[in-house]
Design a protein around this nucleic acid. Sequence first.
DNA 1: AGCACGCCGACT
DNA 2: GTCGGCGTGCTC
Length: 806
Amino acid sequence: MARYAQVIVDVPAMQTNRPYTYELPQELQDQAQVGMRVIVPFGKGERQIQGFIVGLTDEYELAIAPKRVTSLMDLAPVLNNEALQLADWLAQKTFSFKIRCLQVMLPNVMRASYSKSLRLLSAVELPQELNSLFAGGSEIEFDESKLSAQQLNKLAQMRQAGHLEVVYHVKDRAKAKLVGVVTSLVDEQNYTQFKAKVRKNAHKQLELLEFLYQNPHQSFLQTKLQADLQVSLNQLKKAAQQGWLKLAQQERYRDPYGDKTLQVTTPKQLTPEQQRAVEQIDQAITAKNATAFLLEGVTGSGKTEVYLQAIAHALSQGRSALMLVPEISLTPQMVQRVKERFGKDVAMLHSALSDGERYDEWRRIERKEAKVVVGARSAIFAPLDDLGLIIIDEEHEASYKQEDMPRYQARDVALWRGKYHNCPVVLGSATPDLATRARAQKGVYQQLNLTKRINGSSLPQVTLVDMREAVKTAPAPDFSQILLDQITERLARKEQVVLMLNRRGYSSFVLCRDCGFVLKCPNCDVSLTLHMDTHSMKCHYCGHEEAIPNRCPSCDSKKIRYYGTGTQKVQAELEKLLPEARILRMDVDTTRKKGAHERLLAKFGAHEADILLGTQMIAKGLDFPDVTLVGVLNADTSLSLPDYRSSERTFQLLTQVSGRAGRADKTGQVVIQTYNPEHYAIQLACRQDYEQFFFYEMNLRHLNNYPPYYYTIKITVSAKSEAEAAKESFAIKKGLDQCLSPQALVLGPTPSSILKIKNRFYYQLVIKYKQEPALEKYLQDLLLQSQSGEKKGIMVVIDREPVNFL
DNA sequence: AGCACGCCGACT
DNA sequence: GTCGGCGTGCTC
């Protein structure tokens, strides 16, 4: 009987949301299982592509003849039932193509790479243009971009005549790392026999034989043996033929951590508050309740210890645990803490891993060799089964939202998986996302509070500096006298200082004082940013780079100056003011290289610098006992962004960075410089008053019809010309008007705040709504339609609950 | 992406 | 009258 496989196919540059049915050849019928990767032919050209089996049936109802599965790529399914269900839900929820949702659950290397080659079919005379191409061979790599138009033309002709065919290849890049292993077969019994056969003057062979005899039946790493005994692979092969040893390939995990021996830590004594939180979570784990908890705890209140003990409880129940942290706080400090507690049960998934390392960690999880997974956003798809607990640390972080398809929110995926596994989900933060906190208020989430700092240390004292006044007497444009005095004081006491430059929505640019000309990127609608290290102007969107002008290109005036504040400029100011201070700068430029972030932090931790100067990336998760002063140079740049969340972001940032000051014995000081000292976000951040902020901001959201009172969906249209982008976005607006009820609001279409990026023009629409039964369908249709527009260069992006409105 | 189908201009 | 242009649509 014929069997058929329903396959979601991965066709480059073409996506559908429905499976295609393929016939399974007899020999694959028994092996094929749902969740396996397959290779199938697709389209008229019988091009070979990768796909996923999502169903198996005996029925085939189409009028056309079925095509057959070429081969299976896996021996066992790589996606289980949960993953397949989750992919369906994701596709629907995030307006994504199913294939993308399936792929996001697997390590990169399991996505096939495609190539094609040209094969000569008959021994025909080659035209001159192609002679050098084939160079006597009959099959060559086919790369269109490397061939001239004439050559392509000739190739097409030959193909037409049947002399040539295009062969498509699907390459599975998922390869376990193999190491050569040598096992000694020499022992008492055969030693003399072997030795007799060796020429007396063959020193190397005798040496090898002797070594094998000394270590009977032991195994050695082939490369190490070769180095130690100075023998070649050929000699080993020869020895293997003689029966002295066995050469084999063994699978080995790539080890991203090295052989560092870790000290095992034991659970710490909990405060009564922590104790209560742990108990509640443990109860939900034991009772298999999919409860969502909001663990709201001020910085330093010991959230991590609560996580660790709850994880331990899940493990004690024989279940596994998943913990998500923002990428930036996946610093060695955090990794270390979890590894120290749970040892080799832990798998890490973060962006610093190579594709191969990530694949190995994935397989360790899949084989149940790791029961605890710690990772950034995409680790939420880790193939743990029997989950007992999911933790999202710093749940308010914007980085939990993926910015390209599938545009998922890891928190939502966590809640889905919690329901699937009947396990609790803990959302932890000092400054929860407003929507999360609102749900706790309504009782949808259960709130757990940690109100006290763990060692009884008090919250830092915060001083607000009104820069409108202070700037008049300021020793430098970015430093008030108050802040400078405070810094000087710390330097004298050999304590450390963290300075944060709020760069969100801000950059340094060049402006002509005579005509107002601003140097802009020729490809993008943004001003170029000054980089003193390379002495050039750079575009942060497309990478365009040019020289710093000394005359205005527009009016030829010499009064062309730098405006704005960059970390480099601040560093220069600071060096002038305090020449003896050792300053460490941390921003996108100094942390671009792999591991640079960690190195800088380690340096600061080792007291090799007095001042850490950086952008928002320093606000998170670092913990240095000697830091007693935190300065925020410009608190308000993030307030002026055209985004309804700008107050929330500012509040969170200031609260977080303030928490970096002071530990244990030393009380911390925070100095915040601002031009908006009356603003509620800044005022309340100073008092570390989350509750007050929550109520104030909720009221504003309510008045202005913003989340969490409304749902939002952003639609972005981009095209090669502004007219096309505008036209398409207005067409979408028209369609929306027809399907939405009068209760829904549509903002736009408007040109995006950065109209042009990389020579493409952007328009956007935002839908705010509460209940729109017809909207879902409309957007799903729009998603499918947008496929055809892409040929013409018109792209439509649908983003549910976007994290930024820019 | 690639290939076929289909309806308008310059050729044998 | 036909060859071929690339706009449009489909791929089990």
